[in-house]
Design a binder for these strands. Structure first.
Lengths: 248, 248
DNA sequence: GCAAAAGTGTTACCGGTACACCCATGC
DNA sequence: GCATGGGTGTACCGGTAACACTTTTGC
């Protein structure tokens, strides 16, 4: 393995969202520091998935590399939601102690670029146990301790997700390749924190010609089996409407 | 004046838009390099308004500082539209030569944070002539030479502006405090590159209760004088609709 | 046969769009 | 009085929202 030189004052942090057909979850990494002598736990909290960028990679590659490391997946949906450079973002006593401890030559002043990542839960559950990484319901984050300004970054990412999901077909990134309309509805509801009328929802989806019914149906379920659908990006790109009107 | 230490590998670049009641313009800084002996012009092109951040300021402050320097204005509308860290963004021969020439200790690898700035033209026209800075019609940029990846940044900013203007009340940032409805319509048209029906546009504005008619009317114009309006952010914040529906 | 989720239509209202003429002012 | 931009209403259409029952399957 080649040793890459890190850029000491620039990092990327990924807010990775996943959907378990019930609720929206976020991927967090456990951070633990024990006193070397007493074994007493000094720090135990969580961080976003992030790391410094390398001298020889750009920002998107750095984010991709981090996600690949955590999930084993390439081609994850990734989009910036902001750059954060507050002077004090890395300087709480707890965080300073942590930085001293890991001692990798990071700067005191770190600007981080936040990436929103959406992943299909069904493709990753396996790999997570190998690492101190796990899914947490989005609703639980507000009671958790997160390192640095990561709680702030998390909420910025969540807002970006909520904004974008209304306007771009990104909800599909949280679902498997084949999904039912109920699952699709639940993603939207989980992300936006609302609920929709089933019939109206389906009428709307019916107008999205890029959501295509398959021959396949659910099997082995104790109710009327649902039709599977897929999202076609090609059809989307061809048929997207150029809505020019602006909103009140 | 205190000497601030710059961060050699992090900059901000501001894409400053202005509106002259006709078309959308962008503020660009002339860059010129002459050969010391022959006086021959080696580089003459334009750059965005940008500079490295200082060790003791955050990203927003850096952008604010740069704008203050160019326009004399505080409280300009400022919003990030992305962070850019391509490995080659600063490495064309021309740009390398320029960096050698100014020789301020910048790094080879610079990550820049792009800021979208919207300013009220009527408040700045005075100060510009003092500097090698001027307004260019947005439509002219495609034929211009811009430094580094600034043309790319410019178009990213323009797209961000077009996206946001449909969804947030930022068009007002490009207008004076008091404006007529025709002026408002023209801003939207200039930004989005479309045209709207006058009656429909006014019906829409009538539903924006945060656009408030004043007693004042235009004076000295060779036609029916127009009513002035103002944008009230307070009313906007109070009455904004929580549209939850998503778009096809 | 019953529990569980899938699937389906109608009506009422509102917002969007298309479209043409009169008004107030300066010169 | 004429040129210039300001200002206004109506009819149609399509999208959104509210609402309840039947269907298919596993057990």
């Amino acid at each position: 393995m080649i040793a890459h030189k890190i850029v000491p004052n620039i990092s990327v942090d990924c807010v990775v969202f996943g959907f378990d057909f019930e609720k929206l979850n976020v991927l967090l990494v456990e951070r633990e520091l024990k006193d070397e002598k007493s074994g007493e736990v000094i720090i135990r909290d969580h961080t976003l998935a992030g790391y410094h960028i390398f001298e020889d990679e750009d920002l998107d590659s750095a984010a991709g590399r981090i996600l690949k490391g955590l999930t084993g997946l390439d081609n994850i949906f990734l989009e910036q939601f902001g750059a954060f450079g507050q002077l004090d973002r890395v300087s709480s006593p707890r965080d300073k102690r942590w930085l001293d401890y890991i001692n990798k030559g990071f700067a005191d002043r770190i600007v981080t670029v936040g990436y929103l990542a959406l992943i299909d839960n069904t493709k990753v559950t396996l790999r997570l146990k190998e690492r101190n990484v796990s899914w947490f319901p989005v609703s639980m984050v507000k009671e958790m301790d997160l390192a640095f300004d990561h709680k702030y970054l998390f909420y910025e990412a969540l807002e970006a997700l909520q904004r974008k999901v209304k306007v771009e077909p990104i909800a599909f990134e949280l679902l498997p390749d084949y999904f039912t309309l109920s699952q699709l509805q639940k993603v939207y509801e989980a992300v936006l924190g609302t609920s929709f009328d089933k019939r109206n929802f389906r009428k709307k989806v019916a107008q999205m010609h890029y959501v295509i019914a398959l021959k396949k149906k659910q099997q082995g379920v104790a109710h009327k089996p649902a039709q599977y659908y897929l999202f076609s990006r090609e059809v989307y790109e061809k048929t997207r409407k150029g809505r020019i009107s602006f909103i009140i």
